[in-house]
């Protein structure tokens, strides 16, 4: 039989590693905040009229659906998964909502059903991933096409929400500060919903056992299971949350534009993923924050704003730029991960 030797060094924690480790963790988030600030400053210098109430208001109003999507995506990515279906789910949800609203159903029914359509797709992804062990990107890719196909069966031309629909009230501006001329600080009910979602998500992730299980799964799924945490249920919930928030994003988006279309949301999964990744959440799971994703979504919103203001960048190039930014941040994560591994 074997013999055990004595390991001489004391095996206590080495605090020296700590500070540097956490700095490294925060690096992508710091980078994204810095980029957002830079974009503001550059925008103000190059085009002006950035630091004023109506621009800021519009930034939040226009980004609210993306922020909601990004919050849902954060949950999924924290567990090490991905949800590619959110963009298509929005198309199905918003078409369902508009058809129902135009049929004269009351808004208290229309909105919950619109959201539940999203939940249903989330549930299906979750079941495939958790109970049938399908890789997340395959399961949600299948849902992406399924949803897009269903949306195309529902309608192939844009469907307009009736002008008098109470659905639109979610985007009625509420003036907070009355500035000179049109320069007011306004919010819409949608923005308030978005803020509530963000606050709830922060609390759930930080202050509930469910939230801690999400992080544990992202860190080491196998260990989480052996520690007796409800891994299966949590993973199911994560996709359910992402789908539900996609449904909610559909409500917010539709109330603002008043149009539902089978091609709504093409490529939004990339925007949501980009927002999450830019905000510092590791694509491999386990590290990240909801507030980071909010910053990430604002970066993307700001980018769209600057491109519009600039006017010389062709709109076709937007996806190339988003893709490029996403790529840069994924590369940054890769570097951080390698540095970490080397130290461990």
């Amino acid at each position: 039989m074997s013999t055990t030797l004595t390991r001489p060094r004391p095996t206590a924690a080495q605090p020296a590693r700590r500070g540097r480790g956490s700095l490294l963790d925060a690096l992508p988030t710091i980078a994204s905040v810095a980029i957002l600030l830079l974009m503001f400053v550059y925008g103000e210098a190059a085009y002006g009229k950035i630091f004023q109430y109506n621009t800021i208001s519009n930034l939040f109003i226009n980004s609210s659906y993306l922020i909601i999507l990004a919050v849902g995506m954060t949950f999924v990515i924290l567990t090490g998964g991905i949800d590619l279906s959110v963009g298509s789910v929005i198309a199905v949800s918003s078409l369902t909502g508009v058809f129902m609203a135009n049929a004269g159903l009351p808004v208290v029914i229309v909105i919950p059903v619109t959201i539940l359509v999203g939940s249903l797709f989330g549930l299906m992804s979750g079941v495939l991933v958790q109970y049938f062990n399908v890789q997340p990107f395959i399961a949600t890719l299948a849902m992406m096409f399924l949803a897009r196909g269903i949306a195309s069966i529902m309608a192939t031309t844009p469907v307009r929400l009736d002008d008098d629909s109470s659905f639109r009230s979610l985007s009625e501006p509420i003036k907070l500060i009355d500035g000179p001329k049109t320069n007011d600080l306004v919010v819409t009910p949608s923005v308030i919903i978005m803020i509530l979602v963000v606050v709830a998500a922060v609390l759930v992730l930080k202050r509930t056992r469910f939230g801690r299980t999400v992080y544990a799964i992202g860190g080491a799924e196998n260990s989480a299971g052996l520690m007796g945490l409800p891994v299966a249920r949590t993973k199911l919930w994560v996709y359910l949350i992402s789908g539900t928030l996609a449904g909610l994003a559909a409500v917010v988006y539709t109330s603002r534009t008043g149009i539902a279309q089978n091609v709504t949301g093409v490529g939004w999964e990339l925007d949501a993923i980009a927002a999450v990744v830019i905000g510092g959440t590791m694509l491999t799971g386990g590290y990240g924050f909801v507030l980071g994703s909010v910053v990430g979504a604002l970066v993307i919103g700001m980018m769209t704003l600057l491109i519009t203001r600039d006017g010389t960048v062709p709109p076709e190039a937007t996806t190339i730029i988003t893709g490029g930014i996403l790529l840069v941040f994924v590369l940054l994560q890769r570097v951080v991960l390698l540095r970490k591994k080397k130290k461990a």
Binding site: A142, M143, M144, F145, L146, R148, G149, S152, I153, N262
Partner: peptide, 9 residues
């Protein structure tokens, strides 16, 4: 337009 749905299934 519905084909992606069938294929996904």
């Amino acid at each position: 337009a519905a084909t992606p749905a069938f294929k996904a299934i």
